[in-house]
């Protein structure tokens, strides 16, 4: 018989991991909007966020400075990838296919470097608040879940304010709408591209830092996260940051319900089914694609 408490717990867990997918999906959208590029190195940023925080905490640095340093380092790594991998191809007007391959290659290089530096064993970091979960009508709400959901909501609100209220945010939106017209206003489009990589990388790093205490991180976790974030972005409407977040929630929920109803082996099938359903029935995604 269906256990409503277990179902509620499943939904909560699904939404929690969905927030992570959503943040990664937003990262895809931010770069795509600024440049038209689909950056498959996005998963590497997630892995790096958790991994660098782990390494710094191993050096007895407290969580908050470790996390902040990790976010800054990953944001800088995003700019480096933009400068040495994406920009030269972009300047040569390389095709989207070439760009995707180049970012995938960057992802593999980062993975292998991480393997060489920290080995192949999974790493984790302690939960941010080490207290027993809150019980609500039989449902256990872990503090890390609250951290994930709370931080995601704060980030969504902050990103909304950034894109709607600041001149730089508006300039990034202008680049997304019409890059040529944006340049005519004196907006240095290539600078916006670098900023979009920094922002996306920082979002990926935050997602990685948030999720690592509930799972683990290893040199090769980036690709599955990238795929989930990419699906979230497509489901939400590619180029729509808020849509990507909704897509992430939907994806996390679908995966959790598939595990609940069909078994854990069908988790990935659920994710791909969600993608296929949207591609067949609503290819523009929940909010409609931005371009």
């Amino acid at each position: 018989m269906l256990d409503p408490v277990f179902l509620a717990q499943t939904i909560l867990n699904g939404l929690s991991v969905g927030c992570i997918y959503g943040l990664i999906g937003i990262g895809f959208c931010v770069i795509y909007n600024a440049s038209g590029i689909v950056n498959f190195a996005q998963g590497a940023f997630v892995m790096m966020g958790g991994m660098i925080t782990h390494v710094l905490m191993q050096q007895h640095l407290p969580l908050i400075p470790s996390a902040l340093l990790a976010i800054i380092v990953v944001a800088l790594a995003g700019v480096v990838i933009e400068r040495i991998v994406v920009r030269p191809l972009w300047d040569r007007k390389a095709t989207m296919f070439v760009m995707i391959l180049a970012t995938l290659a960057a992802q593999i290089v980062i993975e292998r470097l991480t393997l060489m530096l920290v080995g192949d064993q999974p790493k984790s970091i302690a939960v941010f608040t080490d207290l027993p979960p809150i019980k609500l009508a039989g449902v256990a709400i872990g503090y890390q879940t609250l951290w994930i959901m709370g931080t995601s909501l704060v980030l969504i609100a902050a990103l909304g304010l950034f894109f709607q209220k600041t001149l730089v945010g508006r300039a990034m939106r202008a680049c997304a709408i019409n890059r040529e017209a944006a340049a005519l206003q004196g907006i240095v489009v290539s600078r916006m591209l670098a900023m979009s990589f920094a922002l996306s990388a920082a979002l990926g790093a935050i997602a990685g830092i948030l999720v690592t205490p509930t799972q683990f991180t290893a040199f090769n976790v980036g690709t599955p996260f990238a795929i989930s974030g990419f699906i979230a972005a497509i489901v939400g409407g590619f180029g729509r940051p808020f849509g990507a977040f909704l897509g992430g929630l939907l994806l996390g929920l679908a995966q959790a319900l598939a595990v609940f109803g069909l078994g854990s082996g069908l988790k990935n099938m659920a994710a791909l089914s969600v993608l296929l359903i949207f591609l067949f029935l609503r290819p523009s995604g929940i909010l409609g694609s931005a371009k």
Binding site: R173, I177, A181, L184
Partner: peptide
């Protein structure tokens, strides 16, 4: 300043 053909306004803004 250039006012391009087709105006180039940022329509959704």
């Amino acid at each position: 300043a250039l006012v391009p053909e087709g105006r180039g306004i940022f329509g959704p803004m």
